[in-house]
Amino acid sequence: MMALLQRDLRLALRAGGGFGLGLAFFLMVAVLVPLGVGPEGALLTRIAPGILWIGALLACLLSLDRMFALDFEDGALDLMAVSPLPLEGVVAMKALAHWVVTGLPLALMAPVLGLLLSLAPGGYVWLVAALVLGTPALSLIGSFGAALTVGLKRGGLILSLIVLPMYVPTLIFGAEAVRRGAVGGDAMVPLLLLAAISLGSAAILPFAAAAALRANLK
């Protein structure tokens, strides 16, 4: 399983854009929103937590459809299904690789974008904490959606239709944690709930995604 993680990370590095694409998209969102809503600082301060979370969520969504599709097309997924690797483990490693390539860099870059959106000073720590704890859920839920739609021609569109409603709890708790943190409120509760969603997803979704992969391979 470590071999799979290693391979996926290496592929993401070599393909170029694996790391960069999501980050660039995240940056675009942070630049476009002030252009859309106006430069007024107080307004931006108020909406920054939500915008940053929505940006992270969409940036995650961007690369989901490739999570299994490439291995499906070149036959590697068939071979993995016949190999000693349990498909549940394959899903978990793929989700982990996706998180290392998208979620983690997003969390680390978010404070810079927070500056652009004049996030309140108290919010930065909570922003990074919420993204670090919440983006694993985004990758895991995404891996489930990607497993469902791996064999489809217009998979990307249906993937987002399936995945985005499932992102609702993560988005709510994530943005709420940052919002409360920014105004000095009690951000611990949403943060812990966020962590609970990530852990629960890690416990359940690899099994559901593996079942979906099996159905798609036959």
């Binding site: 592929l11 070599r14 393909a15 070149d74 036959g75």
Partner: peptide, 12 residues
């Protein structure tokens, strides 16, 4: 199993 596709990664 070895199918029509070889499961090779182009960049490796």
């Amino acid at each position: 199993y070895s199918g029509h596709a070889d499961g090779l990664k182009a960049t490796l």
